[in-house]
Nucleic acid binder design. Structure first.
Lengths: 233, 233
DNA sequence: AAGTGGTCTAGACCACAAC
DNA sequence: TTGTGGTCTAGACCACTTG
């Protein structure tokens, strides 16, 4: 076969997935060896492997050397979310973006913030509060702490013009990130900024980033009422 | 070269990633052709391709035929969440799992539920409410609607013993799922089931599944106060 | 029209885990 | 020990997209 294509890995993946959905291979069942599937479908083993890669990532099957390929017993739902720069998110919805710096103060962080960053030693961090608006309405209230030890440059940035969110994303690459979602009742201050009422349920997207072991920043992005995070298709 | 390995795709990926983080290749920059990188690092082009596959998925670079590989200008944060069966989630935390069926009624769904499922025609759906407990404390309140047209078998299941969550995951494969997160203020009923107070902010994980065009089920999983969803490392 | 990534093949060897 | 998936190579052709 001189490099001739017979069947694509996408087709192979779909064939196998169909068999799993149709219970030809049921949860817990062992699939044939890659080699056998390759022979059956008339393609190279590499192609079957590429297809399996996709099914593993989707959470449909599990593979082990020597153990073979098994249909997962508890298929799980795996959802992926993109968290872009807030400005981009708003502009992509076709809305007008605005930004307001609320405060930017060097101060001693409370213990929970230190815990999020994973540091023991107390040190002054830059505490930045800001508001992102879509079509002149509050969209996200950002409460951020920045490690001035790892990111001294931030002190010379005029955060009234450029948001810390944007500056950091563009200028401070990170190697590791922790993302978590939860709900809070709006406090007076937050409610005020988001033009809503104290006690309203708000979604928080919390992110903390590191470069190697070095903490960079941790942020609570508090979304206005009605905000929904939706998974990629 | 008789199939001899020189460098793994993981090493290639890490080298390129390091260059991006160190701004050897800055945001917006074009990377060398795969072929050139392969020659430089002394490996096959396929190996570079495998490495790039990983960087694309991480959201670090973008690739286009003829256009080459480019470092993303706005690196985005991409977070993946596994949403397992609730029982499994609780047991994996090392807690004792319990389950209570609250109600199971065939009824006419309200319009928002129809919208979630993407159907116009009214028809009776099975409306199931249930509570999942961890160590005897309410953990998740599940408010679910099941399409009896696509899933008639559900009517013969004793939902007092097996949760609809579990039965569906095991017996009803799906081809497409929509996942979304948002926050709500607890209503009296919800607060009651979750042993908390009306008005408390609660995180909702909403999922809707289809098999091809056929809607299967839509569920609001309302988590007890304090619940956090965290991304995979 | 031409350049670059995307994929397929066939064959080899490696690494892990089951037996 | 042995079987299975994981990966690498070299070469070929395909498909998209840019100039």
């Amino acid at each position: 076969m001189n490099g001739q294509t017979r069947i694509s890995w996408v087709q192979v993946r779909d064939k196998i997935r169909t068999r799993i959905l149709d219970r030809v291979y049921s949860p817990g069942d062992k699939l044939p060896r890659d080699e056998d599937i390759a022979v059956e479908l008339g393609c190279a083993r590499t192609t079957v492997h590429r297809a399996m890669q996709d099914l593993v990532q989707a959470g449909l099957v599990e593979r082990k050397r020597k153990g073979g390929t098994q249909v997962r017993i508890d298929p799980l739902t795996r959802a992926t979310f993109d968290i872009p720069i807030t400005r981009r998110e708003i502009e992509q919805r076709g809305s007008k973006y605005d930004y307001q710096l609320i405060s930017s103060i060097l101060e001693d962080p409370p213990t929970p913030v230190l815990a999020r960053l994973g540091v023991q030693q107390r040190s002054l961090l830059l505490h930045v509060k800001a508001l992102h608006l879509a079509d002149n309405r509050p969209y996200i209230f950002e409460d951020r702490w920045i490690n001035t030890r790892s990111t001294p440059d931030i002190l010379s940035i005029d955060l009234k013009c450029e948001s810390a969110n944007e500056w950091l994303v563009r200028n401070k690459p990170y190697t590791h990130v922790d993302v978590r979602f939860y709900a809070i009742n709006a406090e007076d201050e937050t409610a005020n900024y988001l033009s809503t009422n104290a006690g309203d349920a708000l979604l928080v997207i919390e992110r903390t980033t590191w470069f190697a072991q070095d903490p960079i920043t941790t942020v609570q992005a508090v979304a206005a009422p009605g905000y929904q995070l939706t998974s990629l298709v």
